[in-house]
């Protein structure tokens, strides 16, 4: 191999097409940090590759993909906008470190979220209960300092760490139409301006997050690693007010991954949301103690 072969400058085309190895990509990035003309060439060729990308035929994603994403982002902290280290931190380096996650050092916010996750008790009352009352602030919890985030970040890590949600997702509906409808309801709910959430420990293990919007009059339960039930049993959700518990639909869980259920019926502000284990088909009134109860506000 001659010196010419090693010149990163010759790899700009391959780089823009993602046809280089991670170490080559790094070498090019480094070289571009000290060469304006190389940086320009990289950016221009990367923009050109985008046009090749735009020429691919668009494909409509399933409704479920959006619902899963909306559920995930509702619980996923964002990277804070650190003061730029220097102008030499290129976008592609950020992307590279993100996509090469195992090898590259994780950004600060990620590292703390991930390391906090295993050790933080999600049932911490102060975080879980105080949060929902601060409506506007609540929606922006992910931009608050990391220390305040522990419970929320841990909840997010649950979802991120739970692997890919799609195959493990178990929802109350069985037909595609029902699932699509529930999925779009979940997406609306997570995006609602007044959406609030509380994460609690589930009796018997695991954690669950209840999301609700008074404006939409709707709520949902999202749980990671909710145990699968023996034959003949289902989970049933309830809207609970001073008159008692009204059935809000049954659902099942796979034991791994994320389960979610959009409650049937309408949420009245101040209702509590509860979940019990009931005989298959569900009950008209709870027959067991709830595995979780969350008071909406």
């Amino acid at each position: 191999m001659t010196d010419d072969d090693r010149d990163p400058r010759l790899l700009t085309g391959a780089y823009a097409l993602d046809a280089v190895s991670p170490s080559e990509a790094e070498a090019i990035e480094r070289a571009a940090d000290s060469s304006e003309s190389l940086r320009e060439e990289l950016d221009g060729l990367t923009g050109t590759a985008t046009l090749l990308g735009l020429a691919a035929t668009p494909v409509m994603p399933s409704a479920r993909l959006k619902a899963d994403l909306m559920a995930k982002i509702a619980l996923t902290p964002q990277l804070t906008n650190d003061p730029p280290a220097s102008s030499s931190t290129p976008i592609s380096a950020v992307e590279a470190s993100a996509s090469a996650a195992p090898a590259a050092p994780a950004p600060v916010a990620d590292a703390s979220a991930a390391s906090a996750a295993p050790s933080v008790a999600l049932s911490t009352e102060s975080d879980a209960v105080a949060g929902p009352r601060e409506t506007a602030a609540q929606r922006r919890w992910f931009t608050r300092p990391v220390g305040i985030l522990t419970a929320a970040a841990a909840a997010a890590a649950l979802f991120l760490g739970g692997g890919f949600v799609g195959s493990a997702l178990v929802n109350s509906g069985s037909s595609t139409t029902v699932i699509d409808a529930a999925a779009s309801q979940l997406a609306q709910l997570t995006a609602a301006d007044d959406a609030q959430r509380t994460t609690v420990a589930v009796q018997g293990g695991g954690n669950a997050t209840v999301l609700w919007s008074n404006e939409l009059g709707r709520s949902a339960v999202l749980a990671d690693g909710l145990p699968s039930l023996p034959d003949g049993k289902v989970y049933e959700a309830w809207y609970i007010d001073s008159d008692g518990a009204a059935p809000a639909g049954t659902f099942t869980a796979a034991g791994t991954g994320t389960s979610w259920h959009v409650l049937d019926g309408a949420l009245t502000p101040g209702d509590a949301v509860g979940v019990t284990v009931e005989p298959a088909g569900g009950s008209q009134a709870p027959t067991t103690d709830p595995i979780l109860v969350v008071q909406s506000a």
């Binding site: 996923t76 990277l79 992307e95 990620d110």
Partner: peptide
């Protein structure tokens, strides 16, 4: 899309 959500500030 999760990456877009997480790193939009970048």
């Amino acid at each position: 899309f999760l990456e877009i959500w997480r790193t939009a500030t970048k």
